[in-house]
Every structure is written in C-alpha cells, then in structure tokens.
Nucleic acid binder design. Structure first.
Lengths: 143, 143
DNA sequence: ACATATAGGTCAATATTGTTGACCTATATG
DNA sequence: CATATAGGTCAACAATATTGACCTATATGT
C-alpha cells in the first residue's frame, strides 16, 4: 500500500472515530441531566426498537454481562422508564417494554441522532443513504 | 416523522453502533496481547499520522485531560514505542514521534482497519468512498 | 414426580479509564 | 524579573466493566 493511499485511509479512520464521538455527545449531555449514562441510552434504544424482547436477547445485542446490565436496568425500571413482565409462553422469561415515560425519554435521546441522519440523507439523497448503509453492513460482516 | 421512516433511521443508528463496535474489536484483541488498551492505539494512530505533534495538540485531538493521557503515554514511552523530544522552536514543547518499534505496532493495529476499509471501497468504488466520507464529515460538522 | 436445565437477579471483589484538584519543573516572554 | 505556558505527577474519586458465587422460579425430559 503506497503512502498516499495510506494517508487517505488514515483520514477515513479518523473520520469514523470523530463521527462516532460527535454522534454520542448530545445524547450524553441529555443523559447527564437525568443522572444516567450511555448504557441506559443503549438499553432504551434497543427496547424501543424491539418491544417485548427478553433480557437474554438484550444481553446478546449489547454484548455485556448479565451483571453489567443489572444496575442500569434496575435503575431504568425503578425510575419508571422500563417495565419488565413475565412472558406468557414461558414465565421465566421477562419481556421488556418502554413505559410512556420511557418512550418520551428514548425519543428525546435518539431523536437528536435520527434527525441528524435524516437531514444528512435528505441532502445526499436516498441512493447515497443505501450506499452508506451497505458500507456499514460490510464493516459488520467481518469474516 | 412517520413510523416507517423512524424504523429506517433506527436501523441506521444500530448500524453505526455495531459497525463502530466491530471495527475496534480486532485492534482491541491485538492490544490485549501487548497488555495495553484502546487509548494507546489512539495515541499511536494520531502520532503516526502527525509525527512531531505536541502533547497539547494530542490532548485537543483526543479530548481527554492531561492526567488521563499521562499514564498510557508514559507506558508507550517506557515500552519504546514513542519518543518525546523538546521542540527546537520552543524547548517547553515536546514533539512526539513513533520509534521504529512504534511504527511496527501502529501498522499492526491500524492495518486491520485500513485493509478492511480499502477492501470495502474497492468493492463499492471510489465515488462511493467520497459519499461515505461526505456523510461522516456532515456528522462531525455539528452546528 | 423428580432431576436437571434455563432465565433471571444480586452481592462482592477487582480492573480499567476517566475525572478534578493540587502542585512541581523548565522555559519563554513582556 | 514577574508572569505565563508546556508539560509531568500524585491523590482522591467515579463510572463501568469484568468474573465468581449463589439465589429463586419455572420448564422440561425421563
């Protein structure tokens, strides 16, 4: 790989890092006002996106331990953002859902990010939205 | 914003999160073998990309405190990956550079990411590389 | 019916990575 | 020569994760 291409790729790595960092800043600021952290946002986001998912599914999605989930999850339940109810098909399984209050907070947190992306994709067009998604998927499919 | 668009945007947020997480996994694995962490990679990356930059410039780039940089930087210097020398124009300023050993480690760490991105952009074409960069820049320019 | 597996909850000990505050040295500059 | 700047370092603390151990409740195969 020649020097010039290497520096182009370095710019790309730096863009990825700075973009991700910028992207989480505003939600982090809002979270702080509520006395909670980024994990809480992730939990709210994935529960919102997949209402009724189980604790185990959430753990697999987040790739953290049961013990690491425990404290923030308990806080979200105690603060009334999330409700956890036994599944009908198997009462050992807890189905997680947002309360109305939880939906409001999740909206407030993620809308910053959704609006930003929506605005950008409106500028660059839906074909380029698909391009961006395709590239991100290729990064994830890492075999 | 309608429900359908909201879910499309949720997919985008999830892709961003998963892509970033996947992207750092392999470097993290290599770092662990050397008994160091992700901050060390960031330091090596930005010093590599901008040889001779000052401690202060690095701090501004990373957006961490002097005290947070201190320990990993001292380790990198002690392990012989980075050298820190007074600048000619102002001897208070330390110019940071990679040693040969440091260049090897930085290559090993970042080449995983550079190769992956290079491969993907070879598949999707250089026009789409520019599209991806443009979108990431728009995320960063957050005014 | 009972042994075993699974889903989930919780406490404790520890590690890592960051913060702020305080204070030090060396060098530059008005 | 007073003051500002660049950088280094220690200490106290917070947050976020890990692993290990152990608990309850429920489901399932024999």
């Amino acid at each position: 790989m020649d020097k010039k291409r290497e520096e182009q790729l370095n710019e790309i790595l730096a863009l990825f890092y700075f973009a991700y960092r910028t992207f989480t800043k505003e939600p982090d600021r809002i979270l702080e006002q509520h006395g909670i952290q980024r994990v809480h946002h992730r939990i709210l986001f994935f529960v919102a996106r997949n209402q009724g998912l189980s604790v185990n599914e959430l753990l697999k999605t987040l790739e953290i331990s049961k013990q690491a989930l425990h404290t923030p999850m308990r806080q979200l339940i105690e603060m009334g953002y999330i409700k956890s109810e036994p599944a009908k098909y198997d009462r050992r399984v807890r189905e997680l859902r947002l309360t109305e209050k939880g939906q409001k907070l999740e909206s407030q947190l993620s809308n910053v990010q959704r609006s930003k992306m929506n605005e950008i994709f409106k500028e660059v067009g839906s074909k380029n939205e698909e391009v961006w998604k395709e590239i991100m998927k290729k990064i994830i499919d890492n075999e």
